[in-house]
């Protein structure tokens, strides 16, 4: 039964509608399309369920609890909070997740009347972050305390940005450093400098290669998808919470695929084994 089901999916998704040899097919990458539509369907199912008031249970991520504590600590010490949205521009989804998280951080900081410093590597990220923070101050009922000078552009050059940010950490001694978004070779330089200045450090990135450095050098680290989940979780919006649940459902499906696939592979069903290679051979 399971086998039949799997093969039906394979058959449906692996049959492109080719029109000729020269022209591109009418429908390219059908398997990707099926997967995408399936994910959209799952997402909307849970969005609607959540919207009806049936909020899913989502466990607390330790890194997120720490954000509020870190801002609180900065307030007690009378020191600023440093927020970095990574080394990606707004065309990177990680940066957008970082800006979403910023919206929460900025509101908390505004409520506590703690300055939030944000050097930025890109112009558009800078102006977008300014809007996010301004809006957060409005929501916190403190529009008067918004200071656009605290969000500023440094340089599009990775290490010039790092050189400046390191200097800021040493001079301003922020009590909390929050690094969210895409990071590359500089992650450890930032995190170690931050540690040396005695700041509480919370990081979150989906860059697999940089996770080890943040895990070692920071107090808390959101690993991979936790960065995206965090932006949804912090919004405390029903629809956003539903999307985390949907993410889990897709995970269960993938886990099921791995389990069933491995079993089928073990009992030696070559058709199944070749499936992904075949369908992906076309791009």
């Amino acid at each position: 039964m399971i086998k039949r089901g799997v093969f039906l999916f394979l058959f449906l998704s692996a049959s492109p509608v080719f029109a000729g040899d020269e022209k591109p097919p009418m429908l390219a990458h059908p398997y990707v399309l099926v997967t995408m539509l399936l994910m959209i369907a799952i997402l909307y199912t849970y969005l609607l369920t959540a919207k009806k008031g049936k909020l899913p249970f989502i466990r607390t991520l330790p890194g997120l609890k720490a954000i509020d504590e870190a801002i609180g600590r900065a307030t007690e010490l009378g020191k600023p909070v440093l927020y970095l949205s990574g080394l990606g521009d707004v065309d990177n989804i990680q940066t957008l997740a970082a800006l979403s998280i910023l919206s929460h951080v900025a509101k908390k900081a505004a409520e506590y009347d703690t300055p939030l410093i944000m050097p930025s590597m890109y112009s558009v990220t800078m102006v977008t972050a300014q809007e996010v923070i301004k809006e957060a101050h409005l929501r916190a009922g403190r529009p008067d305390t918004y200071n656009p000078d605290n969000v500023y552009y440094v340089s599009d050059e990775q290490f010039a940005f790092v050189a400046h940010t390191n200097g800021v950490m040493e001079r301003m001694r922020p009590a909390a450093n929050i690094y969210m978004g895409a990071y590359f070779g500089e992650s450890l330089i930032l995190a170690e400098t931050g540690h040396a200045t005695g700041a509480i450090q919370i990081a979150g990135t989906a860059e697999t290669s940089q996770l080890p450095f943040f895990v070692v050098a920071c107090d808390y680290c959101l690993i991979g998808e936790e960065l995206y989940a965090a932006s949804a979780y912090l919004s405390q919006d029903a629809k956003q919470m539903g999307s985390i649940k949907a993410q889990d459902v897709v995970r269960l499906i993938v886990l099921g695929f791995i389990l069933v696939g491995s079993i089928l592979e073990t009992v030696n069903l070559p058709h199944y084994a070749d499936f992904f290679q075949k369908v992906l051979g076309g791009g």
Partner: peptide, 25 residues
């Protein structure tokens, strides 16, 4: 850019990975 990354993630991080994860036990 979000549109491009959407299908990019499905191809690179879901389907291709599924292919390399499924092995005989």
């Amino acid at each position: 850019q979000t549109g491009i990354q959407l299908f990019g993630a499905i191809v690179g991080n879901v389907l291709l990975q599924l292919n390399s994860t499924i092995v005989p036990l």
